[in-house]
Design a protein around this nucleic acid. Structure first.
Lengths: 192, 192
DNA sequence: GAAAGAAATTGAACCAGATCAAGAATACTC
DNA sequence: GAGTATTCTTGATCTGGTTCAATTTCTTTC
């Protein structure tokens, strides 16, 4: 069943009885997303939370030099959305795009708000997930400021070797805070 | 009463009856922190959450050039802690220090875990606060990558004019991602 | 209120990484 | 499987911001 992985993930954090599972399944929409398809475009108001069942996403924006700047990656069992736009209901500063053919379960903000009232234990789940997500984001700043470009790449590569293969080099470079050309040079240096 | 501001803040997000208020007051410790005093030192395990009643904090680390790098500021009505260390109970990568004479309420991680069971509505409160905190952290990355150093300063200055007066220039420079000398030059340019 | 310490300024030299441009490899697509 | 579109590489040049060092101003502290 399409929701199995999602429910399994939730159950790692909170208990759910059968009725609650059914409420969840009714609230979330399963959706396949093609490679390069956007679920959010810069300037639109973000209306949904997305839980990634399969595949890989990035959130990014176009900077002043007309380059795409990757702000965040999302893979299996992570949420991806633009919280700023979602909460304020103002136009988004980010775009969110599938890097690979992907599968998600999507839920509308309004439906989610109701769901929190129906299943208050979900608050706990999201509290825990957001603590981790925020911790990861702090750690990223730590690496951005505490390491050189080359060290950042090395470090990321050692932590997520398979992921480095999975995304285009120019997106990874952007995420790590330097130009694709520079990453290409780092690699060239290593391979000699 | 010392906890008044804290309870008032919580009540903006969730309802609390008198019994719950008493449980909260019993769980949290009021504490005055002197200017430059640390509540966490890099390498220690972080054991507490801090809610800032009054004053101003920074979390920072020492980078490879032996410079202090500011990762986050915290002011009145914000939480400050190192979630990574707090959750994993591993030594912290950050130090947390009062920039001014400050007042906080502190709660131990263990006590907090119990508190979530006693007052489950707190999960909701933290879920909401963490969404906002994470959104702010994403937005910061957006500005770091999407603007030049000077634009970042301008932007920050226009958003938080009073705060710019409040913290030493070299900490602000570090937070915005450049050297204190460079911020000094930006200011010099403006004042001509 | 003098002395010491901390923070801010200024100048000069330098460099990590960016940008531009052009070509080479991969990967889709029909 | 030919053709087109992406992605990656490499070289040459350039620059936003750093680093180092010296001086000045502002804050503490006793």
């Amino acid at each position: 069943m399409k929701y199995a992985g999602f429910l399994l993930h939730l159950k790692k954090f909170i208990e759910l009885d059968e009725e609650e599972e059914n409420i969840l399944i009714a609230a979330f929409h399963y959706q396949e997303i093609r490679k390069k398809e956007h679920v959010l475009q810069e300037g639109q108001v973000c209306t949904s939370y997305y839980f990634i069942l399969k595949g890989c996403f990035r959130s990014y924006f176009i900077n002043e030099n007309a380059n795409e700047q990757v702000v965040q990656f999302g893979i299996e069992n992570w949420w991806i959305t633009d919280y700023d736009s979602l909460l304020s209901q103002r136009p988004s500063f980010f775009s969110i795009q599938a890097i690979e053919a992907s599968e998600v379960v999507r839920i509308d903000k309004k439906v989610m708000d109701e769901l929190f009232l129906k299943i208050p234990r979900l608050e706990r789940y999201f509290r825990i997930v957001l603590q981790r997500t925020y911790a990861a984001s702090q750690m990223r700043i730590r690496y951005l400021y505490g390491m050189t470009a080359e060290e950042r790449y090395e470090h990321f590569h050692s932590l997520f070797p398979e992921f480095v293969q999975r995304v285009p080099l120019y997106m990874l470079a952007s995420y790590l805070g330097f130009s694709p050309e520079f990453l290409s040079r780092i690699r060239a240096r290593k391979n000699v």
